[in-house]
């Protein structure tokens, strides 16, 4: 088992009377891919926002590289955030900027590269994602799949150590989904980042996973590998899995290829 890069210790998060995370303890391993699965509204996006320090937990510790981010000042938190690349659920591209400017933003803000150097790096990344013809478009002029690709390109610009993906393939057609998975696979091989993927796309996404986390009713259960879920002998876990993923879960035994 590789060392864990992110750890939750007894994390509690509520919104009003609604307890989204209830005493969650979990760890994510360095250099590996964890898939977080669970029904809509169970707190998957909230979990990612806690990791990024965008939300604060009501109780518990969240360690990134062994440091508790819940007790950090903004300056320290920003240093930690530089390690992360994030693809948001809705891509979160800046509306007032073109594709090129969106992808260039991290370089302009976080590095001292000169404009020609920035342009060269951005164009290289855009070409990799088949976006070179669209660099002058604004986000409102892009399709859903294109937005996700631009978001991914932007997230990879600073070569993050940890990538967080919030539903990278939801709402995309199967062909684009395949393309996105290929991009993951290749970019992870190229950059070697740790990745955490939130997805409904079960069982396909399990082909990328080294570890699976199921989230249901405020509780998280970890499986060392996707294969372990059906093998689990604990009725609690099986019912949890069925409850979380429904009939889709049972089909994962049959389908093995993306």
């Amino acid at each position: 088992m590789s060392p864990s890069i992110i750890e939750f210790h007894n994390v509690v998060k509520s919104f009003g009377p609604q307890r989204v995370l209830d005493n969650v303890t979990i760890s994510f391993e360095a250099g590996r891919t964890t898939v977080i699965a669970g029904g809509s509204g169970q707190g998957k996006s909230v979990t990612l926002k806690l990791i990024l320090g965008l939300l604060a937990p009501d109780a518990g510790e969240i360690l990134v590289n062994g440091q508790d981010i819940t007790k950090m000042k903004l300056r320290e938190l920003n240093r930690i955030r530089e390690k992360f690349g994030v693809l948001f659920q809705g891509a979160a591209l800046l509306d007032s900027m073109t594709v090129f400017e969106n992808v260039a933003l991290p370089l302009r803000e976080r590095t001292k590269f000169k404009p020609p150097e920035i342009a060269q790096r951005v164009r290289k990344m855009l070409t990799q994602f088949n976006l070179e013809e669209h660099e002058a478009k604004f986000p409102a002029q892009l399709s859903g799949g294109m937005k996700k690709r631009v978001g991914l390109a932007r997230a990879l610009m600073l070569q993050p150590e940890i990538m967080l993906f919030d539903e990278p393939t939801t709402g995309l057609d199967p062909q684009i989904t395949m393309e996105i998975y290929r991009l993951f696979f290749n970019s992870q091989k190229q950059f070697g980042y740790t990745s955490i993927i939130v997805s409904h796309d079960i069982p396909k996404v399990f082909n990328l996973a080294d570890q699976v986390v199921l989230l249901n009713k405020g509780k998280m259960v970890t499986f060392a590998s996707p294969e372990e879920i059906p093998l689990s002998t604990e009725p609690q876990i099986v019912s949890f899995a069925v409850e979380t993923m429904g009939h889709i879960y049972s089909s994962s035994k049959m389908e093995h290829n993306i």
Partner: peptide, 11 residues
């Protein structure tokens, strides 16, 4: 649309 979150994440 999480654009402000995205800015914060990019520090």
């Amino acid at each position: 649309s999480e654009q402000i979150d995205a800015l914060e994440c990019m520090a």
